[in-house]
């Protein structure tokens, strides 16, 4: 037998673009992140043929996880067809040969920017979230070294002081996307800029969530069935965005997270932000639709988890 027969043919790129050492490093960092839910693990963020800030963190995680048997869905603000999502999907497919899909339930890995799909993810699925800024204490402590000491001491009083100030000044919590959460009763975590609507989805989720910031070189994780609680007071509660009264212009569905489309006459029309789910709603076959995090009346599937029903 000759050496040529044993070695594989010359390739222009490693499988999944990243070299084997980089993929191994990332996998080890992910294991560490899973072992310490919510803890930011530093990693050597590699150069990729897309710019920092365009999802390089999520892309590296996806590339080092994907194998030939995976099915991948990539979304950007809920849309499968945005330029960013389409480019990332094509790149991942070319570099790993995986199958791609728009169907949340069929995907094994879902890479997402700023949204969690409306349909409930199940065990075995991996959600990869692209993170612009992993540090939830940035606003209260700009010094990273001091912020890390605060994480080490679980010294999160400043976050509640921020909530107190919001209530005093505005009468409600003002955080929009990226609402800080406490993971596993320990670490304060930024869930990436997902809307408040999606934040409860992480609590006791059946799937694994990996969050990765390529520019900041940090990744962290929420393992399956982990407590993820939004920061709130014991007598003033976290609330999700109010979707009542909004009707999807395509599917006539209600109580899902909507994109607002301003009209020339000053009014607004609404469209469900999760395009994969809208496509399913438009098909006559209901069997393909999975259970959603919020039902048609806007009730979250874990009863009592969202204590504030008067959504803002």
């Amino acid at each position: 037998m000759k050496l040529k027969q044993l070695a594989h043919a010359r390739q222009d790129y490693s499988y999944g673009f990243l070299d084997e050492f980089a993929k191994r490093e990332l996998r080890r960092r992910m294991l560490k992140a899973i072992a310490l839910p919510g803890y930011q693990v530093p990693y050597a963020s590699r150069e990729l043929p897309i710019a920092r800030g365009w999802g390089t963190g999520g892309l590296q995680v996806t590339l080092s996880l994907a194998g030939p048997r995976d099915t991948i869905k990539v979304i950007d603000q809920g849309a499968d067809d945005s330029v960013n999502a389409a480019n990332l999907r094509r790149f991942i497919a070319r570099m790993t040969g995986v199958e791609t899909t728009d169907d949340t339930l069929r995907a094994t890995i879902i890479q997402s920017r700023h949204r969690i799909p409306e349909e409930r993810l199940r065990e075995g699925q991996v959600l990869v979230l692209q993170v612009p800024d992993p540090e939830p204490l940035r606003h209260v402590q700009p010094d990273i070294a001091k912020a890390r000491a605060m994480h080490a001491d679980a010294d999160y009083a400043q976050v509640w002081l921020g909530l107190y100030e919001q209530l005093v000044r505005f009468g409600r919590f003002m955080n929009g996307a990226s609402y800080p959460v406490i993971v596993h009763n320990r670490y304060l975590m930024s869930p990436s800029p997902i809307p408040r609507w999606d934040t409860p989805d992480l609590h006791q989720a059946a799937h694994l969530t990996l969050l990765s910031a390529g520019r900041e070189k940090r990744l962290y994780a929420v393992p399956p069935y982990t407590d993820v609680r939004p920061v709130e007071f014991e007598d003033v509660f976290f609330a999700v965005e109010d979707q009542r009264g909004r009707i999807c212009m395509l599917s006539s569905a209600r109580n899902k997270f909507m994109d607002e489309l301003p009209q020339p006459d000053g009014s607004s029309r609404f469209r469900i932000s999760d395009t994969g789910y809208v496509a399913k709603l438009l098909k006559p076959d209901q069997a393909e639709r999975g259970a959603t995090y919020y039902d048609d009346d806007g009730r979250f599937y874990i009863e009592g988890f969202i204590k504030n029903n008067t959504a803002v």
């Binding site: 010294d155 009083a157 509640w160 002081l161 107190y164 100030e165 209530l167 005093v168 000044r169 007071f233 014991e234 007598d235 003033v236």
Partner: peptide, 20 residues
């Protein structure tokens, strides 16, 4: 931070989590 917030901070640091 508001004056009341400055005072409340001490209580938050001591673990108080009720706004009222």
């Amino acid at each position: 931070v508001s004056s009341s917030g400055n005072v409340a901070e001490r209580l938050i640091m001591a673990g108080e989590r009720r706004f009222a």
